[in-house]
Design a protein around this nucleic acid. Structure first.
Lengths: 196, 196
DNA sequence: TAATTAAACGAACGTTCGTTTGATTAATAG
DNA sequence: CTATTAATCAAACGAACGTTCGTTTAATTA
């Protein structure tokens, strides 16, 4: 056999990326083999190379897609005019929802940075920092406006993002709480802590 | 050559575990080869098998060592008699300090769960939950005593631990803040949030 | 000192990995 | 209808993987 009936290159490429996300999310990048990936797509191992230059380049593409769309999505949503508290609550809601809805992307971005070649890693890290700056700016504006007491912006931003990102590692769709309820709990924790 | 001068089995075993932690921390478990590990120890690849039954069993041992000592160390430190706020602050301090001081153990435990065989994974996950119960109990006692307003214990515990664990992924010894200062910021965030 | 055990070597095992290549068939364009 | 391009297969490549094994040397015991 050679070319299969009804085969369309664009569809195969999409299928490869979808399958790769799924496999890397569950097994990890190094543990995923191109043979597993090809089998998941329903194609021979060599055929993957029509759409992907190398395994490393595949990971790089997935990471860049994710971090770029994370930045883009937030930029489109951000309401610059609002007060710091509202903006912070919006950020919490956005970050949690995004991380639940696109769990595979997020897990890959957070667990596989090590596997990314050094030449690409710096780029991803810098884009991630760019995203984190959004939160730092909100906190900074809040402190300037007197809405928040003085706090170390860098540490607070790291802490809050770690807290929010953590959700996608324990969230289950059939869990006790809805996404909105989980968001509410986190908004309260971020704003007021446990003593209120 | 065969047995080398001055070789002691116990020392070699220790060296293997130390080197494995370092390599897995930086490269990841799947990416680390036994040849790299052997080279780091200064020994031939086959010689590792005098001390380790298999690569998988090595990971399992490292994970179990870590999670057990985490539970043990906290149990020895916990002051049961104190008020919820003090206990919570103590937990924050302990968790951050432990995660900075034993970064390799922690990184492995958090990033390599996937690589652990399913038969061992359940055990580690259950022990981790046992550790997390310490925080849930503190929060629960605080709510009962009226020191904390009502909060979802499960979500709050996940959120706080994610926040604290996050420190070991960005902390640098030559950074701007000392460990104590970082702990203070986190204690304030956990207790009062950003609006105070 | 002789016998035994501990520790490591060196070489190889079969397997699997990522990747390349040339042939083959399906779809499309002239 | 024919020529060209797109998409895939089948087969193989060398390299590297985890692991095993018989041998050799150092240390310990009798």
């Amino acid at each position: 056999m050679a070319r299969t009936k009804g085969s369309v290159g664009a569809d195969t490429k999409t299928a490869i990326y979808v399958a790769a996300k799924k496999l890397i999310e569950t097994k990890g990048f190094e543990a995923m083999t191109l043979r597993q990936l090809a089998a998941e797509v329903g194609v021979q191992p060599g055929s993957v190379y029509r759409y992907v230059k190398s395994k490393d380049e595949l990971l790089q593409a997935l990471m860049n897609q994710h971090i770029s769309s994370l930045i883009e999505d937030w930029d489109q949503l951000e309401g610059k005019g609002e007060d710091p508290v509202s903006r912070l609550k919006a950020f919490v809601a956005f970050h949690i929802r995004y991380h639940i809805e696109r769990r595979a992307d997020v897990v890959i971005a957070n667990l596989e940075l090590r596997s990314l070649g050094e030449e690409y890693r710096a780029d991803v890290v810098s884009k991630r920092s760019q995203y984190e700056a959004n939160l730092r700016n909100i906190l900074s504006d809040g402190v300037k406006a007197g809405a928040f007491p003085k706090v170390d912006l860098e540490v607070a931003a790291y802490a809050i993002i770690a807290m929010l990102t953590g959700v996608c590692f324990w969230y289950r769709p059939d869990g006790r709480l809805s996404i909105d309820e989980i968001i509410e709990v986190h908004q309260k924790l971020v704003l007021q802590g446990v003593v209120g």
